[in-house]
Amino acid sequence: MPFWLDAVRRFERAIGVPVERFVTSDAYFDLLPHLKRAQSQLEDAVAAMTEEWYRLVNLPSGSDVRQMREQLSRMERQIERLTKQLADRDATGPTPTVRKRDQNG
């Protein structure tokens, strides 16, 4: 192994061991939810600010797109469920041969 590669590996372990100890510690997992919430709050604050500007020029904002996407998702799930129910009812191909275990086994 060349000298430089050995040096990089030693360096990585020198910093990696304490970093790994921290990211598996209780302190890190106590901190993580707070960081995640702070990040969400920051994103919400930025979105709220930009939303006003988008609305002024009559453009959909990020939250409008998100809401529309959620609505579409719900609709697509519903359509897919109905499609499957119809397909299963009309199915002429192979059907499951296995039977669910009954109450008595």
Partner: peptide, 29 residues
């Protein structure tokens, strides 16, 4: 996320954070 699923980035971050400095040695190799 808004799709109702856990985004792949969150899963990747979870695995990555187990050994965040390992990539340094991997890239050197």
């Amino acid at each position: 996320d808004e799709t109702g699923n856990v985004p792949p980035d969150a899963l990747y971050t979870g695995f990555y954070m187990q050994a965040p400095t390992k990539e340094i040695a991997q890239y050197a190799t």
